[in-house]
Simulated scan of single mutants.
Amino acid sequence: MTTTKNTAPATPATTTAAPVLTRCAEAEICADPSSTMTLLADSAPGEGGFTVYRSTFAAGAPGAPAHFHTRAWELFFVIGGSLRVLVGEEVTVLGAGDFLAVPPHTPHAFAAAPGSEADVLCVFAPGMDRFDYLRLLGSVMRGETAPGAIAASSERFDNHYVDSPAWRAALAGDGA
């Protein structure tokens, strides 16, 4: 194998995208009985970009059931506490400072680890217009919208729920 060093001068990529700044005091907050989501940045489908929000889960919060996305990576950075995650068929716990990137088509789920709260930065790349999904989810969790609305939105928000025996077993071990 031959290795060649690139000696061409580096040139910055040109882009028409603008910088994104969201001040904490101006961020929209979505809350349900067990979690709070601070909405930070959202890109429309086809724009590329990213979707970013911060989720804080109360101890015992249910998080998200097993699902996958077909068009985006979902990234998790644990700011504080512990987050239990399913990736494929493996369940593990992430602690403060841990990072996880889940590629498209990979079943995954997440919840606050047993006995712990979790503070997590979540990123979708490319962006997927996810804020409307998070608003819908909060509305369902608060009992304002029928749960069937989530299933009906699966194509729009690229959120496809699946059964995971590994995730069910992990939750059953909690008495959930």
Rank of each mutant, 00 (worst) to 15 (best):
T2D: 08
T2M: 07
T4R: 11
K5P: 04
K5D: 10
T7K: 11
T7M: 10
P9E: 14
A13I: 12
A13V: 14
A17Q: 06
P19Y: 00
L21E: 02
L21R: 05
L21T: 06
R23V: 08
A25H: 10
A25W: 03
E26N: 08
A27Y: 05
A27G: 05
I29L: 12
I29N: 07
A31I: 14
P33D: 13
S34Q: 15
T36L: 06
M37E: 09
T38K: 13
D42K: 00
S43Q: 10
A44S: 15
A44R: 14
A44M: 15
G46I: 08
E47R: 07
G48Y: 06
G48L: 12
T51H: 01
T51Y: 00
T51G: 03
R54K: 15
A58C: 09
A58E: 11
A58Q: 15
G60F: 01
A64V: 10
A64W: 04
A64H: 11
P65R: 09
P65H: 09
P65C: 08
A66R: 07
A66Q: 01
H67N: 09
F68P: 03
F68T: 06
W73L: 09
L75W: 06
F76R: 03
V78T: 08
V78D: 00
V78M: 04
I79W: 06
I79C: 06
G80K: 11
S82A: 14
L83C: 05
L83I: 07
R84C: 10
R84Y: 00
V85Y: 01
L86Y: 02
V87L: 07
G88H: 08
G88T: 05
E90W: 01
E90H: 09
E90Y: 02
V91Y: 00
V91T: 12
T92C: 06
V93K: 02
L94Y: 01
G95L: 02
G97S: 04
F99G: 04
F99Y: 14
F99Q: 08
P103C: 07
P103G: 03
P104K: 05
T106C: 10
P107R: 02
H108C: 07
H108V: 06
A109Y: 04
A109V: 11
A113E: 00
A113F: 04
A113V: 02
A113W: 01
A113Q: 00
S116T: 04
E117V: 09
E117A: 13
A118Y: 00
D119H: 03
D119L: 08
L121F: 10
C122M: 15
C122Q: 12
F124V: 06
F124A: 00
M128S: 13
D132H: 14
Y133E: 08
Y133H: 13
L134P: 03
L134H: 13
R135F: 13
R135L: 06
L136F: 10
L137Q: 03
G138Q: 13
G138H: 08
S139W: 10
R142N: 13
E144H: 04
A146W: 06
G148A: 12
G148Q: 13
A149D: 14
A149G: 10
A149Q: 15
A149H: 08
I150E: 03
I150S: 05
A152P: 10
S153C: 08
S154M: 14
E155M: 13
E155C: 07
R156Q: 15
R156C: 15
F157N: 13
N159A: 14
N159I: 14
H160V: 09
S164L: 05
S164P: 02
P165L: 04
A166S: 06
L171H: 03
L171Y: 01
